[in-house]
Amino acid sequence: MIEVVSAERCIGCDKCVLACPTDVFDRGTDGVPVIARQDDCQTCFMCEAYCPVDALFVAPETRPLPDGSALRDEARLTDAGLLGSYRAGIGWGRGRTPGARLAVGPDLPRATPAPPPVKPSTT
């Protein structure tokens, strides 16, 4: 779930307010978006992708983290290089190669499921 909005990095563009498909943010009076409905966050990471200044962090857990969690601590997230890591991963942002250009996954060793047995004829 969304856990961090960095007031220091935020430029008040409100892109996250728009791009969040489940309407989690409200516009903040000081320009910094407020996490108004965290319960509605579906942990899709789209707000991070659309934030032009890497001010947002979505923890991978689909339930809120307790106070004091490392993944709510902006300084530690910055040190670990996690702020903005999704946007970098998909190659969005100036000077980056779009991830789509490189997205060639492995061939899958896919086992095809067997169809169910046909009912033995009773006649």
Binding site: Y86, A103, G105, P106
Partner: peptide
């Protein structure tokens, strides 16, 4: 190839 194929697959693990 997995990492290139789908970056977001690794988000939970990396984080």
């Amino acid at each position: 190839a997995m990492r290139l194929g789908q970056a977001n697959f690794f988000l939970p693990f990396d984080r």
